[in-house]
Design a binder for these strands. Structure first.
Lengths: 259, 259
DNA sequence: TCCTCCTTGTAAACTATTTCACAAACATAT
DNA sequence: ATATGTTTGTGAAATAGTTTACAAGGAGGA
């Protein structure tokens, strides 16, 4: 056993790493100090071998016959994802979505520090959004030359997205979380992740059966209704698969569980 | 040429279908009536063969030597995704994120009709959220027995997500858009899509280089920095690749382009 | 010590998705 | 009519990602 990853890490692996991290943080809070890959599967629904394979891209983390040390693994994954240090984030677009993201407590919890908010609506510029003042997006290069944020959240209308993305790149942004449903054109060193609600809803909608099947005509489209999300999880038996540990975790927080 | 799809359609194909749909709607508004797969690639960054292959799961849509009729293709894709008819949607969780989603204009534009909002916070129940009243989540089964919504947006805190999901399934919900960063356990007929901001941000964060590389020690983790998003788009040459058509599209809407 | 049990890390098999490459379809010009 | 150019739809090849299967490491008891 030995191989320090050099090749590429699949994106799905990185996504799962974030899931593991959150899961491990929860375990740590329940004072669990060791966990096996089989137990991870039982509690998260992610295949045990997948878990081990994901980790294997980065080195060796467990002890055969024992499992993984929760707090050690947690901090090593945090380090891999570079969320062990504070990452500065700027937000562009102080609309509904943008405002919601500013207030999202998960950001701070994971060391993402929102340091500036921008918009191009003169009615908004200068006003406060939570603890930050909304700046003119035209000033982003200037402002970020002091802040040195490298991650941006792009939450502007579709038709403005590409222009704002160009500004972001010019301002030294390296990584963009794009909520507009278009593919941004950016230089090769800039990494983009897209999130599209409509895309997600459309995939859900596709999997529904039509209520009123009065038009049995062009049946060409009525297919694939048994598709399965790669994300959904079906317990293998009737039992609910929540073990003591997990129930404990739920109990711990259940008193604050009002949405 | 002939084959009416019977097998499974890849999820990535469905996701792209939503992208095509939105793109075609834009084209239609610019009075473009025909488009080739090569032109789709030029304007969206999605490989032309991929576009054709995606469509091929559902039948034949184009004419060799000509291309695709924009409005025909648009309506056929809408039909495939079942966004040609209004789909009722309920929202659970009237927090920041939930509120933002209610106000998202893209929902209505794509025929997703938000018909009810639920929460379990007694301070919120009974109050209005935009044009809807916030209902007690405990009443969801009763209320949805009249509404018959089949899609739910789940925007509650992580620790409440599984319990609410159980309620949703019991209330006849078939499809869930889950914003909590956990894998929901649901019956096999329920389709789930997960959206996790933290996961997205973590993937972005991973791809950043560390600023202060003072600790050249355990270098095991400092790898993979040249990963490429499958979503990002790099123009093949210096030119900006926006042709007249696309520029026209931008111009049409640019006056409303303030975020 | 030796035996048994458990669990990791990973090579190999398998499955899924994307891209290539080309025959067939159609348009247009001569 | 025939030639030429364009573009589709799709097998087949290539690539990417997941799961299986198992050798080897380590714990713990007799």
């Amino acid at each position: 056993m030995a191989h320090i990853n050099n090749g590429k890490v699949p994106i799905p692996t990185l996504e799962r790493l974030a899931t593991y991290l959150r899961f491990l943080i929860d375990l740590e809070q329940c004072n669990v100090d060791t966990i096996s890959s089989a137990e991870v599967e039982r509690q998260t629904g992610i295949n045990a071998a997948q878990f081990r394979k994901d980790l294997s891209y980065f080195g060796e983390f467990g002890k055969p016959g024992v499992g993984y040390n929760v707090s050690d693994l947690q901090s090593r994954i945090a380090r891999i994802l570079k969320v062990d240090v504070e990452q500065k984030v700027v937000l562009v677009g102080a609309g509904n979505l943008g405002s919601a993201l500013v207030g999202y407590p998960g950001l701070k919890e994971h060391r993402f520090n929102l340091v500036a908010v921008f918009d191009n609506n003169y009615g908004k510029i200068g006003k406060p959004l939570w603890n930050l003042e909304i700046n003119d997006v035209a000033a982003i290069k200037d402002i970020n030359s002091k802040l040195h944020a490298r991650i941006a959240i792009l939450a502007v209308p579709t038709n403005a997205a590409q222009r704002v993305a160009d500004l972001l790149v010019d301002a030294g942004i390296d990584a963009i979380l794009n909520f507009a449903p278009i593919l941004l054109r950016v230089p090769a060193h800039v990494f983009v992740r897209n999130v599209s609600f409509l895309q997600e809803l459309a995939v859900l909608s596709y999997h529904l059966t039509r209520d009123s099947d009065s038009d049995a005509g062009t049946a060409k489209d009525r297919i694939g209704q048994n598709g399965k999300s790669d994300n959904e999880y079906h317990p293998k038996s009737e039992e609910h698969l929540l073990n003591d540990l997990h129930l404990a975790a739920s109990k711990t927080i259940i008193s604050e569980a009002r949405s």
